[in-house]
Structure formats: structure tokens, C-alpha cells
Design a binder for these strands. Sequence first.
DNA 1: GCCGTTTTCGGCCCGACTGTTTTCAGTCG
Length: 590
Amino acid sequence: MSTNRKLADEFARMADVLELLGENRFRVAAYQRAARVLGELAENVEDLAGDTNDLVAIEGIGKGLAEKIIEFVETGRIAEHAQTIKKVPKGVLELMAIPGLGPKTLATFWKQADITSLKKLKAAIKTGELETLPRMGKKSVEKLAKSIAFAESAGDRVRLGEALPVALEILEKMRSLKAVVKADYAGSLRRGKETIGDVDILVGVADPEKSAAAVSKAFASMDCVQDVIAAGATKTSVRTDKNLQADLRVVSADQYGAALLYFTGSKENNVAMRERAIRRDLRLNEYGLWKADADMKNPRTHPVAARTEADIFKKLDLAYIEPEMREDRGELSAAEDGTLPDLIKLSDIKAELHAHTVASDGLWSIEELANAAKARGFHTVAVTDHSRAQAVANGLDEKRLIRHIEDVRAADKKISGIRILAGSEVDILSDGKMDYSDKILSQLDLVVASPHMALSQDDAKATKRLLRAIENPYVHIIGHPTGRLINRRAGLQPDMAKLIQAAAETGTALEINAHHWRLDLRDTHARAAIEAGALLAINTDAHGPGDLDHLGFGILTARRAWAEAKHVVNCFTAAKLKKWLTAKRQKMVG
DNA sequence: GCCGTTTTCGGCCCGACTGTTTTCAGTCG
């Protein structure tokens, strides 16, 4: 595990401990923020720990936490934390994962009834002891029991590609209701995050007084609803059969923009926006942007802006910030300065540079792949079947590859309107060597080099391995650089800053693999790559019909990385792409 | 514990819903 991750976990745990101990909530928030920031940091925090100034330059890290980071890097622990953590039993901390159970309630359980583990909590429910505790009635206990069952059955956050269909299905139902004027999914799904905690649905109606109740009822009685967690006048929360929570908010169509802004988040972005409003003598909530002294309860009071998100940004003197960027990662100051990126769009992609055919483990022929790519309006497609090490995927040995190259060249001649490149997805062996000789690689138009095996090797080895691949003159793209599978496999954890630097120096592109299980590179690493001047590729790794549709997930990730079309080789014109494909070889081997 | 177009001290977003309370604390997003 990287030091960044370890420190992020350490601070997150401290936040939990301090919360349980009833510490100042702003101090708790500071720890939570530091944990988030360190988790997202692409640079290796060890490289920054030599100089306090470098650490303090990180948003959310002040003098106090900087000293703690240095202590952790030097000694592997933080003495003060170790002391504090001892005060709270480990089991109590674990109980914080149960939804609806917060620090105050848990502290009461622990101190008044010695409930320090899930086992003890369940026992206390059974014996009725829990009901005797303050503010715990029959209903609270029942709700808690359900919540425990949910926490035990529901595992991780759901992958983007699994949450989206659920949201679309709910939206279709909501839009079919007569009273509904507008409906959208919001939350982390709209921001395109790689995993989704719950599906947020926003509905706009002409008159909430009249129709909110009916809409909420329709939502709570959908077939997929297993459990209603909360059902109020304008806000409803349910658990669906996909083990996903779904939240509905019904607002007046006049205030839809304000509600969409609030409901899309992120929480951190909302806080930053509201703070900005206050500094400008305004107030922002989910009903609108208001004058600071406005009586918002009075229906005759009109907001400064509320109908659209764009109106609100404008009144706050900000350029419109795309949902994918709303993570409090500097987007507000960029929107103020007019330096927001012109984010890449799906229609900017003009080439697929990583796809498989029946020659290895794909489902379609070269022609079928080419026609599918052509149908999407691409000018180029690369055939990149697996190399020999991928025996399970019917990887090609050098002999078969030579023949395959000939087949691709023949197809390229036969099919007009699209250029078909002869490529390969070559395994990066565990020591960084390529699975084919340079002589073979030199015959290919395009080489995607990817790690498939030894994905749990230590960080230093992984860094060396991938650096060696980047430095190979014939490698154009590093495919799914870490090999992670979301919610399934952590993958390699190389020193990303070093890889990015090498990629920038050699003109090697780093792939955002668009499959929703991969999304590898992840958003924060892709952003670091752009900032360092490295190129990205966005590929679907298509194996058959329908797979090119995954591109949308890759685009969302790229937009979260602030990527513009010019940063992504798949957006190059045919001529520019051709030039790029030969540039590295020419530079390195002449 | 962080941070600065009022500030190196004194602030730190805002509202819905629930259950247990007689007016609100706790949790969540």
C-alpha cells in the first residue's frame, strides 16, 4: 500500500475516533478533508515530506498535519494518534459503517451499555436492552436492525456502469408521471464517479404543494423498492433490489437549477459554493441563491437565481462548471479566472486504438470491428490482439502474429472509409520486458503495452516494470496501467508521478481504459498526467458488439481529469495520429 | 485543525426527515 493511502486511512480513522470522543466537529472535518486530499494526491507524499512548505502547499494541510505527515513518513507512526486511538475500542469504530448510526448514538451505546462490537450490539437488540437507552425507542431499534442487515448484505459502492441503468429505469418511470416537468439523475452518478454510493433522482413539478406527494408515492412504490427508509413531503429514500439506495427529491420547476446544483454536489463543492455566496452577501441553498437578508420562508420572496445552474454560476461571477469537475479540486478558482478547460466530449473521439478480434479472445472479425468503428464515425481503428503470454486469451505467438498482420493489411485494403492499424496488446512481463522482441514490435503500426500478470508485485518493482515499458521505443500506449479492477483487485500501485514524467518525456500515452470495471488510469492520475504534459488515450478494449459503447465511461473519467480533446490521442486527426505513431521510434531508434 | 478581499483569531454550509421528545438532537447528503 502506498504511503499516501496509508496516511489517508490513518487520518480517516482519526476523524472517526475524534468524532466518537465528541471532539470539535471542525477538527474532525479537517481530518476528513486531509484524508480525502491525500487519497487523491498523485504525487508521492514521501517526496514532499522533506520540506514542510511543500506539504503546507497542499489544500487542507496546515502546519499541524504537515508535522504529523513527516513523523509518519520518518517513523511509520504518529505517536499522538496511537495514544488517542487506544481510547476507543476497535469494534466501536467498525460500527460506524452502519448507516443511520452516528457517533453520538454509538458513544452512548459504548459508554452506557458496553456495546463494543457488532455481536454485542445484536445481542442488546435481542434482549431489549438497547430500548432502555436514552433516545432509543421501539422504532429506532427496528430501524437499526434493518440497517445492520443492509450493511451486512450490501458490499461496496456500486460500479458506475451498474448504477446507470438503475437510474435510467427510475427516470423513465418518473418522467412518465403527468405532474413531472423535468427529471434527472444527480449526485456522484452525474459527476461520473467510478463508483456510486446511492442513486440520486431529482424531479421538477409545476406545483410541489399539489403533486409532490403523488410523485413521492409513485417513487416509493416502484417494483424495485424493497424498503422505504424515509418518506417526507419532498424527500424520499428507498433501498432497491440491486442493493442500491435511491433518493428522490421533488422541487418546483422554478427552482430546479438550484436543486440540481445542490443534489449533484459534491458536498465539498457545495460547501465552497455556499461560502462564496456568503462572501458576496448572498446565501445559497437548494431552493436558490438569495440576498443575505431575504426572508426565504415568505413565498413572495424571489431568489436572485434558481431556475438553472447556469444562472446561479453567473450570479456568483463564475463560469459554468461541468458536473464532473465539481469536486472542490480547484474548479471554483478556475471558473473565476476563466481558465476552466474546454472538456473533451464523446464526439471528439475519432479512433479506437485498443480492440480484440477472434484472433485472440474477441468475438468479432477484423471486418466486423472495422465496420463498427466506421459506424461510429472513426477515421482509424487498431487491431490489438493479445500477445503470447496471454495463453488463456488465445494470445498470438510470433508466427501467428505475422500472419495476423497480413490479414489486417488485407482488410485495410478491402474496407474503405476507415484506416485499420495492425497492432498488438503486448504483455508487459513482470520485469518490464515486452512479450515480443523489438524486431517484431517494429513491424506493428501500434503497440499497446499492458500489465496482465504479477499484479500484486511490490510498488518499487511495479514502478521499474512500467518505466521499462514506457522507455521501449516501440510502445505507444500503456494499456490499463495499474491493472486494477474496481471493487475486485487493487492492481499495481507504482509511483505514478515517475511514470507520468517518463510518459511525458518519451511521448508515450497513458490509457484510460473505458471499461467500467477498469477506468484505469483513474481520474486523479489522469489529471496529474495532463498537468505534467503527458498524453492520454481513451480506449474501450472492445471484445465484441456493444463494447464500443463503454466509451462514455472513459469520457466521464477523462472529464473528471479536466481533459481536453488535445490531450487525448484518440481525438487527433488521421494525419496527426500517423505522425505521433512514428515520432517516438524516430526519436529513439532513428 | 485549517484559513484569510473584515481576520494570525474566530470563524468554519444548509436543510430534510425521524423518533423521541414536549422543543429538539442526531444523522445524512
